[in-house]
Write a protein that binds this DNA or RNA. Structure first.
Ligand code: ZN
Ligand code: ZN
Ligand code: ZN
Ligand code: ZN
Lengths: 147, 147
DNA sequence: AAAGATATCGAGATCCGATCGCAAGAAACG
DNA sequence: CGTTTCTTGCGATCGGATCTCGATATCTTT
């Protein structure tokens, strides 16, 4: 979901009309590599086209989620944040001081989850692993000794 | 947090007044081993003492959370659910068909999380691992073959 | 036990993120 | 173009959670 062309094609594929608001919103989403919430998306959208309503961003985002284009996260029970569905699954480190998100993958953790679910007689439908972190602040001591 | 005695003692320790509503709410919590939400707690509380308001349950529960007595979970972005802080940390399998919760521990997953955070220059403040599952339904075939 | 200081209560108002209903406007299609 | 159906903007509404407020109840001090 990147160029003007692709967005139109995507809409057609999804059976959605190609409208002005949609073009802008989808462009903004495609250009965002952080994990913005709807209000932030709306901020970016309105900078391009001031008449677009918040409700429209909400609607577009839920639509794209239904269609499997977007993934929705609710880190720390705040406003939901979105990202385009990645090629490969990943989980998140959330910096609680800045709100920044770092992505990571761990095949081992994924495998262990499968194992645990199976041991309890379940199959996994989805999961959520969020690690809330803060930066290690280097002390004089730890800088010297290396650990 | 179990007997009448203990509840009074706990309140005193926390600097809270021992009130009728508090006694009932804390008793209900201490007798719940599932992960009830506030509405469910209120249902159980009202069965004992019909005059107690929902807001009071909300207040008591947030108070106990602040004081480190309760843990709050938001599985699947629905109503928050509570449990008394366990001796040892655990994570949860949530049966999406019934809402039932199964607890599990995995020292390995915990260790891998630490490792990942450290590799990115972070220390873990908290984390959330929720696995949404459904029961494996045994087919005639799988029962025979063992897989 | 009575009084004063203050924490807590119930009830309803309010908050906030998200969704909905509706009338007006715009895309698609022939 | 005209018709049909989808979208949009706006304000109302929803649901979970919190807050406000006057009335009570608990604790402390006599
Ligand atoms: Zn994962
Ligand atoms: Zn991500
Ligand atoms: Zn854990
Ligand atoms: Zn638990």
């Amino acid at each position: 979901m990147s160029s003007e062309q692709t967005i139109a094609a995507l809409c057609r594929k999804l059976g959605l009309r190609i409208t002005g608001p949609r073009r802008v919103i989808m462009r903004v989403i495609s250009e965002s590599s952080d994990h913005p919430d709807v209000v932030e998306l709306h901020r970016r959208v309105v900078a391009i086209e001031p008449t677009i309503a918040l409700a429209t961003v909400y609607r577009t985002v839920s639509l794209l989620r239904e269609k499997g284009i977007l993934e929705r996260h609710t880190f720390g029970d705040r406003r939901a944040r979105y990202e385009t569905v990645p090629r490969e699954h990943h989980d998140h480190l959330i910096n609680i001081e800045t709100g920044d998100v770092v992505e990571f993958q761990s095949a081992e953790i994924e495998r262990l989850q499968e194992e645990i679910a199976r041991q309890h007689g379940f199959t996994i439908i989805s999961h959520r692993l969020e690690i809330y972190v803060k930066p290690i602040q280097k002390t004089r001591r730890s800088r010297q000794s290396g650990e």
